[in-house]
Nucleic acid binder design. Structure first.
Lengths: 188, 188, 188, 188
DNA sequence: TATGAATGAGTGTTCATTCAT
DNA sequence: GATGAATGAACACTCATTCAT
């Protein structure tokens, strides 16, 4: 990795904290500059707007997460275990008090309807992944014979909505657990 | 209605368009001034911040909607019909292509955790209403013997998330229908 | 007194409280409007700036005070008693916590070097009055044989300065008494 | 002196002219910006309010003057000569036709009762200094056996008041001389 | 006369963006 | 490449002043 690439990676890493803290809209170039401890002009050598920073960050995160997921799925672990792991991970994000990258991504989408990549990642990719998992669970008899596509989309949408709203609605852990268990019971 | 009240109502009406267009965070007093075709100072005679405008607007909308709902529920129609009507109404909001006040309300909540009124309206009130409806449906044997509270919260959360995300995710009507029907099938 | 004159007098009375509270510079037409409980436009029917209000007020006060003084002096009271009374009156103004009309007048003079009337009243008139009093006291052998003009101007300047600075310097009563007694001792 | 310090010094120098011209209350950040020929935002890099500018300016001036004074006092010159020099210096300030920083400082104190530094400089410090000088003069038999504290405060107050009022009252040099000589005669 | 809604100019303050070093 | 000082546009907010009623 060249020096420039390393600097870009550094900026994205620091920016991630900022976006997780403040969402997307409220973030200014100054926030990122401050978080990175670099000069105002320095940031502009690599990115020329918060949009650009966020897109690059989101792309990086998406690629990374995609890999982690595929590995987990194809390790032949029990479907139920994979699902529980996944839900557990989402639950942590949901219960986090500060905005998540999901929230920032949502704010970004609200203003930039043509950000296909984010759209794909925030929903399509996850729904597809869940569908694969459900089909696999049906095959291993762990799950009921349900319509995998519909269920996958339902879970994806439900979790996405839950993550966006949990903090603003002040949902406590009890309700989040209740809702997640409710979802699993429908499937298993 | 006095002159001042009429002017307030006029401002709220114009501001509604602005909030539906741009959400809450991105709206400035100047946006509202421009939409109303009044002077900068003129707006300050009625409202002194975007927060104040939005709260007044939201309260007005909430009161109006509340009335519509209560009437429908207490007309003793079959539970299933009331639910379908309600879901149909939400579906229309969900499929509307331009941003709704729900999105603006969500942004408001993201920055203003103490806006109890909005929180109540966006979620608590609706969950409670749905719970009453489900209990009523169970009593009339229209619905299965389910945990009314859990289901009510599930539907409320799911619809809220769906409304927030539908446009940004570009969900087409097929998927929205699929998801709504899926929800009803679980209940009936 | 006609209706208009009565209204003018009313406005001046209320404005006096405002100027005593806030000095001259910080007072806005809105402050006066609020204190008078009249409409914005209404005030403009009588005065078209804070300058105008203040000048009218100062003139009125000056005329009133002038009369009181002259009466006291020509009642043939002992010179020392008249002087003590006068100093006692000034002391009260000096120890008052909020700005006095003197302070407001000073602020006015700072911005309007051509306000001869105020200048005359704040200093020349008082010096002249004190000079008459000192001459009278010398004649009645109550005061030493001093240069009446110089002493009069000294006392006038000293009291004026003391009144302006007492609050901002946080002078407590002990120091004010000390300084006033010091002045009297030089004379008697 | 670094570049930033030089710029700060430049701003203070230009601001000094503004404060001497307009006092403190009437000065806006725009006035300072215009006097410095810099951009609106540029000023905010160094100071974020007129208060801040003025305090920095006053501190600088105070430090400079303090040094001059201490040197004069401890050079063991005759007390009378030091006093005359000091009064001569004050007389120049008093007769200067344009407003002085003293007026601005006074306005600042009027609105900002907790500016101890200014209070100390405008009065306490000077009274203390004069007291030391009078005691020294009594010791060398140059001055009469007077109450040094009372006299020191009297002179400090009198000069302060004189400086504030001289221009607004349009006192000509004859009167200022008369008053200063009068003060000296009381002491020597 | 009297009202008070309405205006718009002026000021404070923040930030994206540029540029000399 | 890197810096950070500087700029200026944009927005929040206040207030003197006007004007239709």
């Amino acid at each position: 990795m060249g020096k420039a690439a390393r600097k870009r990676a550094y900026i994205l890493e620091k920016a991630k904290g900022v976006f997780m803290e403040k969402g997307f809209i409220a973030v200014t170039m100054k926030d990122i500059v401050d978080a990175c401890n670099i000069s105002r002009g320095g940031l502009y050598l690599y990115f020329s707007s918060t949009e650009e920073v966020f897109l690059a960050l989101f792309l990086r995160e998406a690629e990374y997460e995609q890999q982690r997921m595929e590995i987990a799925i194809w390790e032949n672990l029990p479907a139920k275990e994979i699902l529980l792991d996944y839900l557990e991970k989402r639950k942590k994000l949901i219960l986090k008090k500060s905005p998540s990258l999901t929230q920032a991504g949502h704010e970004f989408l609200t203003r930039n309807s043509d950000a296909q990549m984010i759209k794909k990642w925030q929903f399509d990719g996850i729904a597809e992944m869940l569908r694969g998992l459900i089909l696999y669970g049906i095959q291993t008899k762990e799950f009921k014979q349900v319509d995998a596509g519909t269920w996958a989309r339902h879970i994806a949408l439900f979790l996405y909505g839950l993550e966006l709203t949990a903090q603003s609605l002040d949902l406590h852990e009890g309700i989040v657990d209740e809702q997640i268990n409710f979802t699993i019971r429908g499937l298993v």
